[in-house]
Simulated scan of single mutants.
Amino acid sequence: MAEKIIFDTDPGIDDAMALLFAHAHPNIKLHAITTVYGNGVISDCTRNACFINAKFAIGAVVAEGASGPLQRPANGPTICVHGQHALGDVQAPLDTPIEIDSRPAYQYICDEVKANSGEITLVAIGPLTNIALALQHDPDIVNHVKQVVIMGGAFGSDGNFGNVAPFAEANIHDDPDAADQVFTADWPVTIIGLDVTHKAFFSGDYLEQLRHSAGEAGEFIWQVSRHYLKFYSERFGKDGCHVHDPSAVAFVADPTLFGTRSGPVRVVNSGPMIGMTVQKTDSLPYYDDEFSHFRSQEVAITVDDQRLLAIYRDSINLLAD
């Protein structure tokens, strides 16, 4: 049976890549898309979600979410990475119909996970504000969500500590307070962070091949990736990009792609290391311990990157049929 997901996203170039992956993969049923600020302002992110939803006949419900963090000013869109309106050189038409559910995203999430108890996985690939707001609105949802899969964080494996700050990944850095609430809630969370997303790579040649094999979806992925690859080339001297957001979808589709480790996770929410994610991996008790009374969560630390690339390619190619 396909995994039913609510996809919380700030589209976003790699978000768009991940959204089409979730739509295409036979093991995933895309129940809804909830939008959040992050790679763009909320109006752009919602328009982009509606545009992709309609363009590829995804048929998902869209619900608009938070326009900023729980309790601090927004960091602002990452224009240098994702472009002026978050889809690189592609712009969703300004007259794109904004067909969205009347409920805010947090309310939609609460209502749907309780109406489908034990069936829905929350996949969040942007700032975690919507998920934290849902927890605040109805803490009982922890008993109804099947699992939570996050793209975010960095735990230092193989030197991967951060991408927008020395010790912080962008999604967590955007709202560290929300992330800490999500990671310490009493539900199962798997965190797909830079420790694994930096180990998988969409090369320029890979994206070019996808352009020619996957029809309109391949062409769209190639077009939105132009701005992204320009950033990677100028910043890192690489022809291609890391597989960030699609990796969270890959975990839902096939968890055997990843190796994880267990332990409670906290997020630093002040000072020069704000947004840093830390996992306690031992079982020792400590006199001063703000970890051990929270449940263990799973952090991905290894990935079969070549199999992930093959699964992504094969899934997107299905959209050409």
Rank of each mutant, 00 (worst) to 15 (best):
A2T: 12
E3R: 11
K4C: 01
T9E: 05
P11T: 09
I13A: 03
D15N: 15
M17L: 12
M17N: 11
L20G: 05
A22T: 06
A22C: 07
H23F: 12
I28M: 01
K29W: 05
L30N: 02
H31P: 00
A32I: 00
Y37C: 06
Y37L: 06
N39F: 06
D44T: 08
C45S: 15
C45N: 14
C50N: 13
F51H: 14
N53E: 11
A57R: 13
G59M: 12
V61F: 05
A66P: 05
L70F: 01
G76E: 12
T78F: 02
C80L: 08
H82K: 06
A86M: 07
D89Q: 10
V90S: 06
V90W: 07
D95S: 14
P97A: 13
A105Y: 12
Y108V: 06
C110F: 08
V113P: 03
K114H: 09
G118W: 10
E119Q: 14
L122Y: 07
G126C: 14
N130R: 05
Q136D: 15
P139K: 12
I141D: 01
V142P: 02
N143L: 04
N143R: 09
K146D: 10
K146C: 06
M151G: 00
A154W: 01
S157M: 05
G159I: 00
F161S: 10
E169G: 02
N171C: 12
D175C: 08
D177N: 12
D180V: 05
A185C: 15
G193D: 09
L194C: 13
V196H: 04
T197W: 03
T197E: 02
G204M: 02
H212E: 10
A217Q: 08
G218K: 09
E219T: 08
E219Y: 03
E219F: 01
F220N: 03
W222E: 00
S225I: 10
H227G: 09
Y228Q: 13
Y228N: 14
F231E: 07
K238W: 04
G240S: 03
C241T: 13
D245K: 15
D245Y: 10
S247C: 06
F251Y: 15
F251G: 02
P255A: 03
T256F: 04
T256M: 05
G259W: 00
G259N: 04
P272T: 07
I274E: 12
G275R: 10
G275D: 09
M276H: 01
M276S: 09
Q279V: 11
Q279A: 11
S283D: 14
P285L: 04
S292L: 01
H293V: 06
V303Y: 04
I311N: 04
R313K: 15
D314R: 13
D314G: 04
S315R: 09
L318S: 14
